[in-house]
Computed example of a mutant assay.
Amino acid sequence: MQNVHLTIDDLAKLKIVPTVGPVAESVFAVDLLRRGAGGAPFAGWRKAVGLKMRRTRPSADVLTGPGGLRPRPAPESEELQQRARGSWLFDLVSSEGPADDVECPDPVIERVHHLGVAPYWAQARTHLQLDRDRRCQLLVSGGIEHLLSTLHAWIDWSPPVLTVASGRAQEIELRGNGLVIVPSLFLAQPMVFADPARTDRAPVLVYPAPLDLDTADALWSTVGAGDRALAALVGRTRAKVLQALTETCNTSELGRRLGISPAAASQHATVLREAGLVTSRRRSNTMLHSLTALGSALAMVGSPALDTGMAEPARSPCGPGPGARA
């Protein structure tokens, strides 16, 4: 059990962000594949990724077994537990830079990212954004206690201690730094990642976002079809703008995500804003862009649906996700 001790100051600094990014998700996906975990919702994904790996030339570190990767004789999640004790994985899940621009730390993770995460990332990111928005609504309507007590079946909130059944024995004192909460698609069980160097960076609680069979089937089977439909409706580049804005970001970062200049990104955002699909607000010397309810619905074309029960995503204390800095 990981016992996270929260003070009033920590609760005041609690943040919910939409994703740890595709590279961190690839780390979790490697663990999921090697253990054949995830159950029925991931059966289609495991089959598709295993087939891709058998069709492509495997590296020295990747074998084409039933799960696509070499099975490990170690107990479940031991490898991920060992990784969690290192600073590099904490750096990865706590990154405040552009989540899509992080380099893969080793060839196995890069391979799984290429074959098993990147092809599904647009839909996955939308799914995670919607789960995060639903948590924000729970926070706004029911308070922190309601949020923490409903995160996951393996997470228990008994003030002032949040207990996470991660398989690790650890006492985590936040020391007023707060806690970052983020959903994951590929993490099999909730886990708290804390900086081994014991700096003032807030630990990150990553929990598995719910995934039912219908949503999973849509997620694994519609890759590419939704993108084509959305591109036909609004144009290819503006379709990419909508999908990129499932995470709030500023103009410069939007340009980096799309591989276009900030001026071009601003122009596309302006057109979509005039169409009621994007909203923009100024913060200091930068402009932050987010999807409206209609824009979010369009971005979900071909993506799995998740009923949030709300017209607009809650913004505080959830705020912009990672990479929304100037």
Rank of each mutant, 00 (worst) to 15 (best):
P66N: 03
G67E: 02
G68N: 10
G68K: 04
P71I: 03
P73N: 06
P73V: 08
P75S: 11
S77K: 05
E78Q: 15
E78N: 03
E79N: 08
L80R: 00
Q82R: 11
R83I: 12
R83L: 15
A84G: 08
A84Y: 06
A84F: 03
R85T: 11
R85V: 01
R85C: 08
W88L: 09
F90W: 10
F90I: 06
D91A: 13
L92P: 10
V93K: 01
S94W: 04
S94T: 01
S94M: 03
G97I: 07
G97Q: 13
G97A: 12
P98I: 04
A99S: 14
D101G: 08
D101T: 10
D101I: 01
V102A: 12
E103D: 11
E103C: 08
C104S: 13
P105R: 08
P105G: 08
D106K: 09
I109H: 02
E110V: 00
E110C: 07
R111G: 00
R111H: 10
V112M: 06
H113T: 00
H114F: 08
H114Y: 03
L115R: 09
L115G: 00
G116M: 05
G116H: 09
G116T: 02
V117H: 02
V117K: 04
A118N: 01
A118M: 05
A118V: 07
P119H: 05
P119G: 05
Y120F: 15
W121P: 01
W121Y: 09
A122V: 06
A122Q: 06
A122I: 04
Q123G: 15
Q123Y: 00
A124M: 11
R125F: 02
T126Y: 10
H127M: 08
L128N: 03
Q129E: 11
Q129S: 14
Q129I: 00
L130E: 06
L130I: 01
L130Q: 12
D131W: 15
D131R: 14
D131P: 00
R132P: 02
R132V: 02
R134V: 01
R135G: 02
R135N: 05
R135Q: 14
C136F: 06
C136G: 15
Q137I: 03
L138F: 00
S141D: 14
S141P: 00
G143W: 00
G143N: 02
I144G: 05
I144S: 13
E145G: 14
E145S: 15
H146W: 03
H146M: 10
L147C: 10
L148T: 08
L148Y: 06
L148P: 04
L148R: 09
S149M: 07
T150R: 14
T150F: 07
T150A: 13
L151M: 09
L151F: 07
A153K: 15
A153G: 15
A153V: 11
A153Q: 14
W154Y: 07
I155M: 06
D156F: 11
D156W: 11
W157P: 02
W157E: 00
W157A: 02
S158P: 01
